[in-house]
Amino acid sequence: MINYLGTPMLETDRLVLRKIERSDAQRVFDHWLSDDRVMDNLIKGAHKSVSETIERVTEIVRNYDSKEFCYWAIELKTSGELIGAIDLFNFDSLTENCEVGYSIGYKWWNKGYGTEALRAVIDFGFRQMNIHKISAAHNLDNPASGKIMRKIGMEQEGTIKHMIRNAKNHYKDCAVYGLLQEDYFKNVK
């Protein structure tokens, strides 16, 4: 059975994963939600105004009342810069499976932050929440995201054609990855 714990603070060597706050909205907009390079890989596309981001952040903050809501802001320990977000979602109580998704601001790509954040959330999901399987997907034109998934032990299970349609009305094929709790525990150091 999934042990729902909400969104507790998680720490890694370089990151603090914490609840997002309304006061973060401008930084969320500036650092990733308004950037086409980041948001092209997501269904809704880049935000055009900070008011759109305020609305989204307000919705996230409101959802923290639910123990079944797991959404973290990713913050650098040294500078306090907000660099992205990561969440567990689509929980299935019958299979005890869920999905994970993440966004990192372009300025912080290729520095290992996505891998570090994903590793922390996967570990939390398996150890604390008792999730059976965690899945993720990435557009085929974003292979760096697949590299992050493989680094933490996820395996590609297949490709789904036209899995999403982005904000520019283009269909995109996605690679689907998964990791079982039992496999994670066999391979974790």
Rank of each mutant, 00 (worst) to 15 (best):
P143D: 10
Q128A: 03
I20C: 13
N142Y: 09
I104S: 06
K67G: 05
N169E: 10
N139G: 04
I86F: 00
C70S: 07
V50S: 15
A137W: 05
I2P: 00
N63Y: 09
K172R: 12
R150F: 05
R37S: 05
R27Q: 14
S23D: 07
N90Q: 11
K44W: 15
H162A: 13
Y184H: 08
A137V: 05
H138I: 02
G45C: 09
L17H: 08
H138T: 03
K67R: 13
K189E: 07
I2Y: 01
M163L: 15
W109Y: 01
N169V: 03
I54N: 15
F89I: 02
D92F: 10
T115C: 01
I74A: 09
R27I: 04
R18M: 02
K147I: 10
G153I: 01
G45S: 06
D87P: 00
D30K: 14
I152R: 06
Y113V: 04
R14N: 04
S23L: 15
H138A: 08
T12E: 13
I20F: 12
G45I: 06
E59W: 14
F91Y: 09
Y171C: 13
D87R: 09
H138D: 07
T53P: 15
C174W: 10
I131W: 11
G146Q: 02
H138G: 03
Y106S: 15
G6D: 08
S135Q: 12
K67I: 03
G101P: 04
T12N: 10
Y106L: 10
D40K: 13
I152Q: 03
G178T: 06
N142T: 07
Y64G: 11
T78D: 12
W109G: 02
I134P: 00
D141N: 08
I122S: 00
N166H: 14
R62L: 07
T159F: 00
T58M: 13
N41M: 12
N130S: 04
T95H: 12
I43H: 12
A73Y: 08
H170R: 15
R119L: 14
L10P: 03
S49N: 12
Y106I: 02
A136H: 03
Y106G: 04
V16C: 06
Y64K: 11
M39R: 14
A167D: 08
W72S: 00
S34D: 11
I2D: 00
N142P: 01
F124A: 04
Q156F: 04
Q128Y: 00
